[in-house]
């Protein structure tokens, strides 16, 4: 059974059809790539799945529950997390606090626990801190845990975004161009981290990326969209040889 199922989704902005009758089906544990030329509608698809936009038509189902039209925070709590194309960290908070924010939904502390700083709260805060530090270690960010997030170098900020997204303990992780601006070495490390996210955390990954080395190296299935429509779907090797894909990227002869 598919963990995330997008069925017949359409989204228009005025006269512009950004996404048209789109279907995506992610089975549990998939490493799934979504590629396409600039303006193909990839980010719109992310925004539809995460509740930033509501689709005009169609349904989005997460583990059997329809989620289209719900608030973004509610969808996040149901198990979809994401990173952003243009990094959106909580800049004034420390690296550690950024990850802690994502764990707030799993808290049992009430407002009175917080105000009175009860022992229950303090125990929970210690657990949250421990979990967050562990996650940072995996992402090689533990040494900078107490630095302000905005002071991190670019590649580390991208890694922190992934760590923060994983801290919500999602079922599905959406990565929006995580390799953008990374050097080749960082990109290779990123590929390992994405695979590890699936293997160690059991998340299903939907990846939008322009760096073909990363996409081809990580994804097991790739879906190609252009002008909001799917033009190809298959394993990396099939995609690379698909004439329609080559035309979309390089233009028709």
């Amino acid at each position: 059974m598919a963990i995330l199922d997008v069925k017949g989704c359409t989204k228009t902005f005025g006269g512009l059809v950004a996404v048209k009758d789109l279907n995506i089906s992610l089975r549990q544990g998939a490493l799934y790539g979504l590629i396409g030329p600039n303006g193909a509608g990839k980010t719109t698809i992310f925004n539809l799945i995460t509740g930033v936009y509501t689709p005009d038509e169609g349904t989005i189902t997460l583990a059997g529950h329809e989620i289209q039209g719900r608030k973004a925070s509610a969808i996040a709590r149901l198990g979809i997390s994401r990173t952003f194309q243009n990094i959106r960290l909580f800049g004034s908070m420390t690296v550690l606090e950024n990850v802690k924010v994502s764990q707030h939904m799993r808290k049992s502390q009430g407002l009175m626990d917080a105000i009175l700083r009860t022992s229950r709260l303090r125990e929970e805060e210690e657990r949250i801190e421990r979990d967050a530090m562990e996650l940072l270690k995996i992402f090689h960010l533990d040494e900078r845990a107490h630095d302000q997030a905005r002071t991190l170098p670019y590649g580390s900020q991208r890694r922190l975004e992934i760590a923060r997204a994983l801290a919500t303990e999602p079922k599905v992780l959406l990565l929006d161009e995580p390799a953008a601006g990374m050097n080749p070495q960082e990109a290779v490390e990123l590929m390992h981290l994405i695979k590890r996210s699936r293997d160690d955390f059991g998340v299903t990954v939907l990846l939008v990326e322009h760096n073909m080395k990363v996409v081809m190296g990580v994804c097991e299935t790739i879906q190609v969209v252009d002008y909001g429509e799917t033009i190809a779907l298959g394993a990396p090797r099939e995609i690379q040889e698909d004439p329609r894909v080559i035309e979309a990227y390089l233009g028709g002869a």
């Binding site: 925070s73 997390s81 959106r88 909580f90 004034s92 707030h104 919500t168």
Partner: peptide
């Protein structure tokens, strides 16, 4: 503070802003 820093990201991390 997450709302102050980035409301969209806060929502995406499950904070009912």
């Amino acid at each position: 503070i997450s709302i102050r820093d980035d409301e969209i990201a806060a929502e995406a991390m499950g904070v009912d802003t």
